[in-house]
């Protein structure tokens, strides 16, 4: 049986940042997140303890009855990686819009100019997208895009390769070629806590091979990238993600987004989605 919206796992805090009790929202309902003598906890408004999982530097919870364990990212467990707690940023947009933007590369030259992309290198070549039924995830592979400065050590532009994975409706994982370690993938994630259907708290997290940068530099880089996206996300109309075709016009470059929308519709995940009025 398909999981209901309530039965998914959601990120609600950084394990390293849990101090006293913090009140926040999850799916429009108030929850309290914190740490006490007995460990970490999440409680709903009635004081009921909600299930928790500690993974990827974050505390996860679910207001419903999760039928599956929280997904894993085996690549992130390989030794030698820097695990980067990027911290959260609040955005007035649908959690699904935040995820969809993360899956998009065609905006790099215009929103992350001279960092992740630059004119005239705007072309998006055909890549592979599939909905993997056996794991119930969306995957995009063989995504290649021109990057002006792929790493601090890199001179001039290179073609960078990416893989995108959507393991849960409000989470996305990006695997990106790693200049110092050819053959390995850097792991960059976007975990989204849906505060309401049109407001979210975004928790990026990374597991990188990087011996050159300080932790503060890695955090700063990712916050810069995400805040460049935020000014887009807060200005899309409508705020919710339209799941039905017709309202927005995709092209071949949007294959990941098209698959993501189709998958959301198929699994019935419509929190933060706009459906055509019947």
């Amino acid at each position: 049986m398909r999981e209901a919206v309530d039965d998914h796992w959601y990120p609600v805090g950084l394990l390293s940042g849990l101090e006293d009790t913090r009140k926040t929202l999850l799916l429009g309902r108030e929850i309290a997140v914190g740490r006490n003598g007995a460990g970490v906890f999440v409680r709903d408004a009635a004081g009921r303890a909600l299930p928790t999982v500690a993974r990827f530097g974050h505390l996860w919870t679910s207001p419903g009855q999760p039928t599956r364990d929280l997904f894993t990212i085996p690549e992130a467990d390989t030794p030698g990686r820097q695990l980067v707690d990027v911290g959260s940023v609040r955005v007035k947009c649908s959690p699904l819009r935040a995820v969809e933007n993360f899956l998009d590369i065609a905006h790099f030259p215009f929103v992350h100019t001279d960092i992740l992309g630059a004119e005239p290198h705007t072309e998006v070549e055909r890549y592979q997208v599939d909905i993997r039924e056996e794991v119930d995830e969306v995957w995009a592979t063989e995504v290649k895009f021109f990057q002006p400065q792929a790493a601090r050590s890199a001179e001039g532009g290179i073609k960078t390769e990416y893989m995108y994975r959507v393991p849960a409706p409000t989470c996305a994982v990006l695997y990106k070629t790693c200049p110092p370690r050819p053959g390995e993938w850097d792991v960059i994630t976007l975990f989204v806590q849906p505060l309401t259907e049109e407001w979210c708290e975004v928790w990026p997290w990374m597991a990188l091979y990087d011996d050159q940068s300080t932790m503060a530099e890695m955090v700063s880089f990712q916050q810069m990238i995400f805040m460049q996206d935020r000014s887009i996300l807060e200005n899309q109309i409508p705020r919710k993600l339209p799941l039905d075709p017709g309202m927005e016009v995709p092209t071949q470059a949007d294959m990941t987004s098209v698959a993501y929308r189709r998958w959301l519709k198929r699994i019935g995940y419509t929190y933060g989605a706009q459906l055509v009025a019947a």
């Binding site: 390293s16 707690d85 932790m215 955090v219």
Partner: peptide
Amino acid sequence: TRAVNFHPAKE
């Protein structure tokens, strides 16, 4: 510039 982890680490 020296990046300071203002958020989330309060450096």
